[in-house]
Amino acid sequence: SADYSSLTVVQLKDLLTKRNLSVGGLKNEWVQRLIKDDEES
């Protein structure tokens, strides 16, 4: 899986927004959300 934890907050928020995922919570929660989205898609 991609190394989301190395991305900036701005990059992570951009990815979350593009995938229609929530940008609520902490940075590590966003990373988990993106990883989960990868596994489900």
Rank of each mutant, 00 (worst) to 15 (best):
L34Q: 00
V31R: 01
L12Q: 00
Y4L: 02
T8R: 03
D37V: 03
L15S: 02
S1L: 13
K27E: 08
S41W: 07
V9E: 15
K18Q: 11
S22E: 08
K18E: 12
Q11H: 05
V23N: 06
L21W: 02
V31G: 02
Y4K: 01
E29M: 04
V23C: 09
W30G: 01
L7W: 11
A2G: 10
L15F: 04
Q11K: 06
S22H: 09
L15H: 03
L7P: 00
Q32M: 09
E39Q: 12
S6G: 09
G25F: 02
E39Y: 11
D37S: 08
D38L: 06
S41R: 15
E40V: 07
K18S: 11
S5K: 09
S5H: 12
S5E: 13
D37M: 05
Q32G: 06
T17W: 06
V10A: 15
N20T: 03
S6W: 06
V23Q: 10
G25I: 01
V9A: 12
Y4V: 00
R33Y: 04
G25N: 02
E39T: 08
D14R: 08
G24M: 14
R19H: 05
L21G: 02
S41K: 14
N20A: 08
E40P: 04
V10Q: 15
T17V: 14
K27T: 10
L15C: 07
W30L: 15
K13N: 05
T8C: 07
G24P: 03
G24H: 15
Q11A: 07
D3H: 13
S5N: 12
D14H: 10
D38R: 05
G25L: 02
K36P: 01
E29Q: 08
K13F: 14
S1F: 14
G25C: 06
V31L: 07
L26V: 11
S41L: 11
Q32I: 09
L26M: 13
G24Y: 09
L12A: 01
T17Q: 13
L34C: 12
D3G: 12
A2K: 13
L16E: 02
N20M: 06
L21H: 05
T17S: 11
Q32C: 05
L34V: 02
V9L: 14
K36L: 12
L7K: 04
W30I: 06
Q32D: 12
V31T: 03
K13E: 07
L21R: 00
E29P: 01
L21T: 01
V9K: 08
E40N: 12
S1D: 06
K27P: 15
E29A: 07
Q11I: 05
I35R: 08
K18C: 11
K27Q: 09
S6H: 12
S22M: 05
S5I: 08
K13Y: 14
S5T: 11
Q11Y: 04
R19P: 05
L16N: 00
K36T: 09
V10I: 12
K13G: 02
R33A: 09
K18G: 07
S1N: 13
K36F: 05
Q11P: 01
L34P: 02
L21N: 03
I35P: 02
K36Y: 06
E29L: 03
D14K: 09
L34I: 04
D14Q: 10
L7T: 00
L7Y: 08
L34N: 03
L7Q: 04
L26P: 11
S5M: 13
W30M: 15
L12H: 00
T8Q: 03
S6T: 12
V23W: 07
L12K: 01
N28V: 10
L26E: 15
K18T: 06
Y4W: 04
R33W: 05
Q11T: 04
L21Y: 00
E29G: 02
V9C: 12
D14T: 08
V23K: 07
L15E: 08
D3L: 11
K18D: 09
R19M: 04
W30C: 06
V9Y: 11
Q11V: 05
D3E: 08
V31Y: 04
D37K: 05
L34R: 00
K36Q: 12
G24K: 14
R19A: 05
E29N: 05
L26Q: 13
V10D: 15
S6E: 11
D14W: 11
T8W: 02
E29R: 03
R33I: 06
N20G: 15
L26W: 14
E29S: 06
D3T: 10
L21M: 04
N28W: 15
